[in-house]
Nucleic acid binder design. Structure first.
Length: 563
RNA sequence: GCGAUCGUCGUCCAGUCUGGUCUAGGACACCAGCCUUCCAAGCUGGUAACCCGGGUUCAAAUCCCGGCGAUCGCACCA
């Protein structure tokens, strides 16, 4: 069965239920509410905790991957290095006639004017107005250019110039700490580091409830591996997990009928570039199934070249079908290559390389560069700064830098390739250094919460049932006295205490009729309802009622947890 | 951010056009009590709202202006 649409009303009903019973609701409602911020209520926080617990069981524990918690605020330079500052400090051009906003660079390029990301706002504005670029909507030719940053900005300490950002993803915390983590993990490769925590994106106009938030929770895993030894040893462990994959070709053609493959087939048929990426996708599928989302409501959709994040060589969105919002992305699986580690290595001038022992020593050719002091002195005079800078680099690094950039900038002086002498040498080495590549599964917890609730939501006549499985349901048991007298309530409270003492989440309710209590419990997904009746007083048995089937079994109190 | 539509108890809806009758009504939910021997039964009582600010007027939920928020469309969504 392949589904393309679900009932949109379910979404509305889930949102209403979430608010009424305390899973989640919009924050700051007493002040009218602020878009993109939500509060998780008592049931929502439990559900979230339980989802996180399942995630750890699936993604971390079997593989001894580690978890960290890094700050949510980082200095400017971190996100400058990561490419975030550059990649979304979008220049917005506003048409002064109709007020529509466009990307300034897109508008100019459509009109044959080449600009770069470094082009200043003033220049962009001047170009737009001078070239009389027409507004695509109203043909107006007057423009005002301003920039919009999707990261929340703040100051660190009392100095305005010390800019910090609230992280737009938890990932950078793991990249900047890579050295330390690698050491702590005793230099094992491949290895995985996870982080669960808040991230912030200052969306222009967040809508759609929990789906697009300005502050949200992520579960991210960075799997570091050697690109020349990129086999994933666990691929056969997930061979029974079948995925619906829309590869790049299908996405491009608009074909919405996915391939049905397991991780190995996905790699062999060329849909997924890396084994580790396919493996993480399989775990992701397993994870959502464990949360109660059936495979036919899940799919992996490839991102095309232009849609991908600046760091990614291949990305699959893990999507879940919902009623009103259609397919929503609950996870992104990205092949980040060595983009992040390399960027931080260059910016911070600290090494992100790891050492690999080779099976056999090999001969390698290396290119070295040495400065020609006479030539430098001749053109730059007694430029000690240049020598100081160059001597801080190893000859091989110097050669690499020169080959890449063609020059070296020292303060205002540009020292070209011609000031250096290059040498090729052959060395025998028994180790090899490399910057690890990264596969990143990244989950948005609030989106998962919403998706899980939608898929757990069922109606039986006019009754609502949340079929959350035992692993994630906010309550495992509810305990009801059949009536609130003759000692039934006392006995019920006793059972309630016993179950709580044994570590279960238990709800006690003696309000209204018994049917009403079953209904209330069903609605928030309590797995089993235990009713204390007159027979309980005689033989210490209770009835245990299953939430989904409504069937009851009479069971001894001591044996409740076996059922 | 633009445009359109909209904003009344926890929720859904009535009242707004045509200002006064609104001390803002109903249903469901919720709370208390009664009743109740297994699936939202019944009875009694109760809590509870005109998004915020300003203006017009003798009088504003109602008309006007501004703000905030929501929904949809456009743009944005690394």
């Amino acid at each position: 069965m392949w589904r393309e649409k679900l009932d949109a009303n379910v979404t509305e009903k889930v949102i209403a239920l979430a608010k009424r019973r305390g899973f989640y609701w919009q924050a700051y409602e007493i002040y009218g509410g602020v878009g993109g911020f939500y509060t998780l209520g008592p049931l929502g926080t439990r559900l979230k905790d339980n989802i996180i617990r399942v995630w750890r069981k699936i993604f971390l524990e079997p593989y001894d991957f580690i978890e960290i918690e890094s700050p949510t605020i980082a200095p400017y330079i971190v996100f400058e290095a990561s490419g975030h500052v550059g990649s979304f400090k979008d220049a917005m051009a506003e048409c002064l006639k109709c007020g529509n906003k466009y990307r300034a660079d897109h508008l100019l390029e459509e009109n044959g004017v080449k600009v770069s990301e470094a082009t200043s706002l003033d220049v962009l504005e001047k170009l737009l107005n001078e070239k009389a670029v027409r507004c695509p909507d109203c043909s107006g030719t007057s423009w005002r250019v301003s920039s919009f940053l999707t990261m929340f900005q703040t100051n660190i300490g009392p100095y305005k110039e010390n800019v910090g950002f609230l992280r737009p993803e938890t990932a950078q915390g793991m990249f900047v700490e890579f050295r330390q983590l690698y050491e702590i993990n005793r230099a094992r490769m491949p290895f995985g580091v996870a982080q669960i925590g808040k991230a912030y994106r200052n969306e222009i106009s967040p809508r759609q409830g929990l789906i697009r938030l300005r502050e949200f929770s992520q579960m991210e895993l960075e799997l570091f591996f050697n690109p020349s030894d990129n086999k994933c040893p666990y691929l056969d462990d997930v061979k029974d997990i079948r995925m619906n994959i829309l590869d790049e070709e299908k996405v491009r053609k608009g074909d919405t009928v996915p391939h049905d493959v397991n991780a190995r087939e996905a790699v062999e048929r060329g849909f997924v570039k890396e084994e580790w990426l396919a493996f993480m996708m399989a775990l992701s599928q397993k994870f959502l199934c464990r949360l109660g989302i059936k495979p036919e409501f899940q799919r992996f959709k490839a991102k095309l070249e232009g849609e991908r994040a600046h760091y990614s060589a291949q990305t699959f969105d893990h999507e879940v079908l919902t009623g009103k919002f259609g397919w929503i992305e609950v996870a992104g699986h990205a092949y980040r290559q060595d983009y992040d580690l390399k960027s931080h290595a260059i910016k911070s001038k600290s090494s992100m390389e790891v050492v690999e022992e080779l099976d056999q020593p090999v001969k390698v050719r290396r290119r070295l560069a040495y400065v020609d002091p006479l030539k430098v002195k001749k053109d730059f005079g007694q430029a000690s700064e240049i020598f100081k800078h160059i001597s801080s680099l190893k000859p091989c690094e110097l050669a690499e830098l020169l080959d890449r950039e063609g020059k070296i900038d020292v303060n205002d002086m540009v020292v070209g390739k011609e000031y250096f002498i290059f040498k090729e040498v052959e060395e025998t080495v028994s180790t090899r250094k490399y910057i690890p590549h990264v596969i990143e599964p990244s989950f948005g917890i609030e989106r998962i919460i919403h998706a899980v609730l939608e898929h757990a939501f069922h109606e039986k006549g006019d009754r609502v049932i949340l079929s959350l499985n035992e692993e994630i349901a906010p309550y495992r048991y509810a305990v009801f006295p059949l009536v609130k007298r003759d000692g039934l309530d006392v006995k019920a409270k006793e059972i309630y205490s016993i179950l709580k003492f044994r570590g279960f989440t238990v709800l006690y309710d003696d309000d209204g009729s018994i049917g009403r209590r079953y209904a209330r419990a069903d609605e928030i997904g309590v797995c089993k309802a235990i009713t204390v009746d007159y027979q309980t007083l005689e033989d210490n048995t209770v009835t245990v009622r299953d939430r989904d089937s409504w069937l009851q079994k009479r069971i001894k109190i001591d044996e409740i947890e076996k059922n």
